[in-house]
């Protein structure tokens, strides 16, 4: 049976709170898991006191070494779990829509500002060409 790293919803109505768990894929969401790796509180916390320009933050507790072990033995993270694990560098990011879009915008503006229109048809920079290809693909 497939072992998955996924979130189990606890907390109250309008106050979600998740356990990050390792469980068999076909067990119920809140059933007793193989192991509880950590927690994820999706409600943004106010900036810490004394932090003038502090940003709100989300609290995640995670046993990093144990997570690495489970990923190493083939546990499959769910999409949400994948996103969290990618943030700490355990996995490669799966969805990087924002990043790619940013690259495209940046390359586009760079191409417009740097290359004069007359020579643009002859020689184009490598970076801009790549991103164009990415957009088409």
């Amino acid at each position: 049976m497939v072992v998955r790293i996924r979130l189990a919803r606890f907390g109250k109505k309008h106050a979600p709170f998740y356990n990050i768990v390792v469980a068999h894929a076909r067990t119920a969401r809140n059933s007793r898991p193989l192991e509880v790796l950590g927690t994820y509180n999706p409600l943004p916390q106010p900036p810490r006191p004394g932090d003038t320009h502090g940003r709100p933050w989300k609290d995640i507790k995670l046993d990093l070494s144990r997570t690495r072990y489970w990923v190493g033995v083939g546990a499959q993270p769910s999409d949400t779990a994948w996103r969290l694990l990618a943030m700490v560098g355990i996995l490669e990011p799966k969805f990087r829509v924002g990043e790619v879009l940013g690259q495209v915008v940046r390359a586009d503006s760079a191409a417009k500002s740097l290359i004069p229109p007359a020579t643009a048809a002859g020689g184009e920079s490598g970076g801009a060409g790549e991103t164009k290809g990415a957009v088409e693909a």
């Binding site: 192991e35 509880v36 790796l37 950590g38 943004p44 940003r55 709100p56 933050w57 989300k58 609290d59 995640i60 507790k61 995670l62 046993d63 990093l64 144990r66 969290l84 943030m87 700490v88 924002g98």
Partner: peptide, 21 residues
């Protein structure tokens, strides 16, 4: 703590141990 800044808020990771149960 490991802080990962994202668009709207920071994600703050704290390393814990599963053996504490």
């Amino acid at each position: 703590l490991k802080t990962v800044p994202k668009r709207r808020w920071d994600f703050v990771f704290k390393d814990v141990s599963v053996d504490s149960v």
